Computed example of a mutant assay.
Amino acid sequence: MAKLNITLPDATAEALRASSDGNVSAEINRAVLQRLADKELRRIAAHEQQNPSKYRDTDLARIGMGMPL
């Protein structure tokens, strides 16, 4: 497991300590994972906008159920 040293404004650090239930590392880990997931979802959304599906949602549902189009 990596150990990082970060710098935060005093007010942010105090709020983090107060809201973290004593586990600042876990709180920061959750926040970083959420941020990474948000970035990935934005990347996927941008890709889908630039490359629209040739199938409608109903078609995809049929394919998923093994039904012919």
Score class of each variant (00 low, 15 high):
residue 41 L to P: 01
residue 47 H to F: 15
residue 11 A to C: 02
residue 36 L to A: 09
residue 38 D to R: 04
residue 55 Y to K: 15
residue 66 G to N: 04
residue 11 A to I: 09
residue 20 S to A: 15
residue 61 A to L: 13
residue 13 A to M: 11
residue 64 G to A: 14
residue 33 L to Q: 15
residue 34 Q to A: 15
residue 44 I to F: 08
residue 61 A to F: 12
residue 48 E to N: 15
residue 27 E to R: 15
residue 26 A to G: 07
residue 34 Q to H: 07
residue 51 N to L: 01
residue 14 E to H: 06
residue 23 N to M: 07
residue 29 N to Y: 05
residue 25 S to V: 00
residue 22 G to I: 00
residue 63 I to N: 04
residue 49 Q to G: 10
residue 46 A to R: 12
residue 4 L to C: 02
residue 9 P to L: 06
residue 52 P to D: 12
residue 22 G to S: 04
residue 68 P to L: 15
residue 61 A to P: 01
residue 6 I to M: 02
residue 5 N to S: 14
residue 62 R to G: 08
residue 31 A to D: 10
residue 19 S to T: 03
residue 13 A to F: 05
residue 21 D to E: 11
residue 51 N to S: 01
residue 8 L to M: 05
residue 18 A to T: 08
residue 40 E to Y: 06
residue 46 A to I: 10
residue 7 T to Y: 04
residue 23 N to R: 01
residue 19 S to A: 14
residue 43 R to L: 14
residue 40 E to T: 09
residue 2 A to N: 13
residue 14 E to R: 10
residue 52 P to E: 11
residue 1 M to R: 08
residue 57 D to H: 01
residue 26 A to V: 07
residue 12 T to K: 03
residue 49 Q to E: 13
residue 32 V to D: 06
residue 24 V to D: 00
residue 10 D to V: 11
residue 10 D to P: 13
residue 56 R to N: 03
residue 65 M to I: 09
residue 56 R to F: 12
residue 24 V to Q: 04
residue 18 A to Y: 00
residue 22 G to D: 07
residue 17 R to M: 03
residue 16 L to K: 12
residue 18 A to V: 03
residue 58 T to Q: 13
residue 66 G to W: 02
residue 60 L to D: 04
residue 41 L to H: 14
residue 9 P to V: 01
residue 30 R to A: 10
residue 32 V to N: 02
residue 31 A to T: 09
residue 53 S to W: 00
residue 46 A to V: 05
residue 30 R to C: 00
residue 65 M to Y: 07
residue 60 L to K: 14
residue 49 Q to A: 15
residue 10 D to H: 07
residue 69 L to Y: 15
residue 16 L to M: 06
residue 53 S to M: 01
residue 43 R to A: 13
residue 64 G to R: 00
residue 36 L to M: 12
residue 65 M to W: 08
residue 1 M to Q: 10
residue 35 R to Y: 13
residue 61 A to K: 11
residue 1 M to I: 12
residue 52 P to R: 09
residue 56 R to V: 04
residue 51 N to T: 12
residue 17 R to K: 13
residue 68 P to R: 14
residue 8 L to T: 02
residue 38 D to G: 08
residue 7 T to H: 03
residue 18 A to K: 05
residue 9 P to E: 07
residue 15 A to D: 02
residue 32 V to Q: 04
residue 53 S to Y: 06
residue 1 M to K: 09
residue 63 I to A: 10
residue 20 S to Q: 07
residue 27 E to A: 15
residue 54 K to Y: 07
residue 50 Q to E: 14
residue 60 L to N: 10
residue 53 S to P: 02
residue 55 Y to M: 14
residue 30 R to D: 14
residue 2 A to F: 13
residue 69 L to M: 09
residue 54 K to M: 14
residue 25 S to I: 04
residue 17 R to Y: 05
residue 42 R to P: 05
residue 28 I to D: 06
residue 4 L to S: 01
residue 66 G to R: 11
residue 65 M to L: 14
residue 40 E to P: 01
residue 6 I to D: 03
residue 63 I to S: 04
residue 69 L to D: 13
residue 29 N to L: 12
residue 25 S to E: 04
residue 37 A to E: 15
residue 49 Q to L: 12
residue 50 Q to P: 01
residue 54 K to C: 06
residue 53 S to V: 02
residue 67 M to D: 08
residue 56 R to C: 02
residue 54 K to G: 15
residue 9 P to T: 01
residue 25 S to H: 02
residue 51 N to G: 05
